[in-house]
Design a protein around this nucleic acid. Structure first.
Lengths: 205, 205
DNA sequence: CACACAATCCCCTAAAAACAGGATTTTTAG
DNA sequence: CTAAAAATCCTGTTTTTAGGGGATTGTGTG
């Protein structure tokens, strides 16, 4: 039985590229594509692919969010993350949210086919580069922020002072200061500049 | 005579996608691809395409740099910028460096064909979204930084204080402070957080 | 040769952030 | 239920930034 593949990506060129790369592969059935999260979920009401190739960046919501939702509603569908970015944060996040693999957009046809085969066998697949990134950054962890910390972080990035943030969130300035301290500690940053740089690098902003 | 197209991109899927989108177009001759700046320049020693589709992000150097170099050595070749990012800074920069057009990677086949036709007629082409971005941000210019300001900016982003930067650059702390003030003014940022965010958004960091 | 501009330096004040300790009350998850 | 985690608040001090003024020297361009 052929492996049914569905792809969710908002780039025509990528959709065409993958279609083209896979079209002569035996045992692979192309089910089509969606260009956003909403139409992906609509498609899944009617059809059941074996594997979804899922872009990290979608217009209506993050691929990571969508991945989580798909796995809740359709746990049997395997998901392979797809993106241009070889950032550890993305790779980790989508794998933690139930994806079975991760492939960079500069993958070759062989990489793609390997990924699909591995995943269909129930194994996890990480492209070489993705695995390398993970390994390289084994020590430097991505901080886990609480709801409130994320909120404060974004307001800091907006250029607001502790005082302004306190007013906006209806809490005391000292509380904001505490959150700020915790953010600095979690990112191992010694000041705001490093904090914001780290946060953008880890895709928090 | 057919329009000879060459593409420089490090993503197989994009190369395949564009090839697939263009393969049935009349009057377009596919010359092949390069996956980095070096092999692109090597190719150009032997062949002369009419149009190069050039990715902004290449492994060995930025597409913007490569664009400039190509236009110096081969001024007759027209270049169309290509990227996933609809950031004003990229669009502006590559157009300033001699590109004749800019297309986002979520372009349709029609967009691509339009771009190629326009450029072959000697006109400039901006995809709808790119034009929108440019128009939207007409007022908010990208600051022009001096050599020293860039240097100081990077050190601020590293988390260094004015004092540390002064020591590192063998200048007075007050001088660093002056540069810092100018940076804040140029970015219209009221504090370090906004400064760093703006700088990363405009690809200075 | 002017003139703009970059780079350098200075003073002063006020505001904000960083550092160092706490402590209490909710929430959440096992 | 209970222990851990999160969110809240506090009192200090020191360091760093931000904002307001200046000023001098060199460099390159019209």
């Amino acid at each position: 039985m052929a492996t049914r593949i569905f792809i969710v990506d908002d780039h025509y060129m990528i959709i065409e590229g993958i279609k083209s790369l896979l079209q002569n592969e035996k045992g692979i059935e192309w089910m089509g594509h969606a260009m956003n999260a909403a139409s992906c979920m609509a498609f899944l009401q009617m059809h059941t692919p074996d594997i979804i190739l899922l872009d990290i960046n979608l217009p209506d919501k993050s691929g990571i969010e969508l991945c989580k939702e798909i796995k809740v509603s359709f746990p049997k569908i395997n998901i392979i993350g797809l993106s241009s970015f070889n950032q550890q944060s993305y790779i980790n996040k989508i794998m933690e949210n139930g994806a079975s693999g991760y492939v960079l957009k500069n993958a070759t046809r062989e990489d793609l086919v390997d990924a699909i085969e591995y995943v269909m066998e129930g194994k996890k697949y990480l492209s070489e580069e993705a695995a390398f990134i993970i390994k390289k950054n084994e020590g430097s962890k991505i901080p886990i922020l609480t709801r409130r910390e994320k909120e404060v972080l974004l307001l800091i990035a907006e250029g607001m002072t502790n005082n302004e943030i306190a007013t906006k969130l209806f809490i005391s300035t000292t509380t904001v200061d505490t959150h700020r301290k915790n953010l600095l500690a979690k990112f191992e940053a010694k000041n705001t500049a490093t904090l914001i740089r780290m946060a953008t690098q880890h895709a928090f902003i």
